[in-house]
């Protein structure tokens, strides 16, 4: 700059500016590298899943085929997607994913029945009704709830929800003696775990609704309930829905808590007090080290993992679709 004082600072880059540009480019490359890591990781995981799942269905990995191996279908898709018995590690193996897919879906739906109403109501209370002092206590409590390790939730289910809460109900009302695990206990514990996710994201969306809209409704003689139901929720609907999707995705992928709560017995049942097995619980039980690398039961892990991956992918796509559709309507 000092060399250009006679005519004021020029716009051509001096030596200092050149160094600046270099640093700028370097920073850009480092940041890009970090961002690329996440993309590469996702792609690698997807590839590993597909590669090993191919081995499960066709007897050879894609990488083996590339160096001269050949595919030979051992497990048909029909058996996999429609079979009702899941026991890849049994002496008479069966490869129907339905029982554990049922487990995952049942837990997810049951959990949604807990987390969505309670989470939405909590968000509405925090955003529209609570006084500052209540809010300042409730919000941190919810954050603590979100930060508890899932294994702790699992032990909470196995030592409290199942034996203390559900046991007496099953016994006295239905005459069923409850075991160590139950589907209902899994639904409840996963539901509780995902409440903070629904409430905090929904509350953010509700808080983002401009006060102008609320005032417009209050000035027409709306009650707080009218304003919440007819102004705040419709205006925040895309954020609220996003919180549901995230909570459901979390429930689909939830592992530790649900394994400890719902158990390891793959079966399709309508009895909420019976033990079931989710896809994640199966993966945990298989990954404990008893199955050798390369065996069918080991490869089945990847097939199940791929299905899980696709389920959460569908949830994400739904979220995107919904967001686009409703942001158009409520700018």
């Amino acid at each position: 700059m000092s060399t250009e004082t006679d005519q004021g600072p020029g716009i051509t880059s001096g030596t200092g500016a050149k160094a600046d540009q270099k640093a700028n480019r370097r920073a850009r490359r480092v940041l890009f590298g970090c961002a690329a890591i996440t993309v590469l990781t996702t792609l690698s995981i997807f590839f590993v899943l597909i590669d090993n799942a191919a081995s499960y269905f066709f007897g050879a990995r894609i990488t083996e085929v590339l160096v001269g191996g050949s595919f030979e279908q051992t497990i048909t898709f029909t058996e996999f997607f429609t079979g009702t018995r899941w026991a890849p590690d049994h002496s008479t193996p069966a490869h129907g994913i339905l029982p554990i897919a049922f487990g995952t879906i049942a837990i997810t739906v049951g959990a949604a029945f807990v987390s969505i109403p309670i989470g939405t109501a909590t968000a509405l209370y925090l955003s529209e009704y609570s006084s500052k002092s209540v809010r300042s206590k409730l919000k941190p409590t919810l954050e603590v709830l979100a930060g508890i390790p899932t294994i702790v939730y699992g032990y909470f289910a196995i030592s409290f929800i199942n034996p203390v809460m559900l046991g007496p109900i099953a016994e006295s009302l239905f005459g069923i003696s409850i075991g160590r695990y139950s589907m209902l206990s899994g639904m409840i514990v996963v539901g509780i775990m995902t409440i903070p996710m629904v409430s905090s994201i929904s509350e953010d969306a509700m808080q983002a609704v401009p006060d102008d809209l609320r005032n417009g409704a209050y000035a027409l003689g709306a009650t707080k309930f009218d304003v919440s139901l007819n102004v705040v929720i419709p205006a925040a609907v895309s954020g609220i829905f996003a919180s549901y999707i995230l909570a459901v995705s979390r429930a689909i992928g939830e592992t530790m808590a649900v394994t400890l709560a719902a158990g390891f017995n793959a079966n399709i049942t309508a009895n909420p007090f019976s033990e079931i097995m989710t896809m994640t619980a199966y993966m945990v039980s298989m990954a404990r080290g008893t199955s050798a690398v390369g065996t069918v039961e080991y490869q089945s892990l990847f097939a199940v993992g791929l299905v899980l991956f696709l389920m959460t992918l569908v949830m994400n796509l739904m979220n995107d679709w919904f967001k686009r559709r409703f942001q158009e309507e409520y700018r």
Binding site: P210, D212, L213, N215, G216, A217, A219, L220, G221, A222, T223, D226, N230, V231, P234, A235, E329, Y330, R331
Partner: peptide, 26 residues
């Protein structure tokens, strides 16, 4: 006692529903 604000603040609803809102809640 109704009120009109400085910034126009129609609800993100149709023209009809905006006008009908007060009638509905009352």
């Amino acid at each position: 006692i109704g009120m009109v604000f400085q910034q126009p603040n129609p609800f993100p609803k149709s023209i009809y529903d905006n006008v009908a809102y007060g009638l509905k809640i009352q």
